[in-house]
Simulated scan of single mutants.
Amino acid sequence: MKRQKREARRRTLIGRGLAVTIGAMALGGCVQIDTPDKPIEINLNINIKQEIVYRLDGDAKKLIEQNSSIF
Rank of each mutant, 00 (worst) to 15 (best):
I22S: 01
L56K: 04
P39T: 01
E41C: 03
G17F: 07
E65Q: 14
A19D: 11
R16M: 13
K61Y: 11
Q4I: 15
D59Q: 06
E65V: 06
E41A: 04
I52N: 04
K61C: 05
K62L: 11
I33D: 06
K38I: 04
I42D: 01
T21I: 02
D37G: 01
A24N: 07
G23M: 04
R11A: 06
V31A: 07
Q66G: 01
P39H: 01
S68I: 13
L18R: 15
R3A: 02
K61I: 05
Y54C: 09
R16V: 14
P39S: 01
L44F: 03
K62F: 06
A26Y: 10
A8G: 01
G58V: 13
C30I: 08
I40A: 14
R16F: 09
Y54N: 10
S69N: 15
I40D: 15
A60T: 04
A24K: 09
I46Y: 01
I46D: 00
D37Y: 04
C30A: 13
A26P: 03
K5N: 10
R55M: 02
M25W: 04
K61E: 12
R55P: 00
A26D: 08
M25A: 05
I48R: 09
S69R: 15
I52E: 04
L27N: 07
I46L: 12
I33Q: 07
E41Y: 04
I14N: 05
N47K: 15
Q66I: 12
L18Y: 12
I48W: 02
G15W: 06
A8L: 10
S68L: 13
I40L: 15
E7C: 05
P39F: 01
A60F: 01
N67I: 04
N47W: 08
Y54R: 10
G29F: 12
S68R: 15
M25R: 06
D57G: 01
P36W: 08
L44R: 09
E65L: 11
Q32N: 13
N47G: 10
K5A: 10
I70N: 06
R3W: 02
A19I: 05
K61R: 10
E41N: 08
D57C: 01
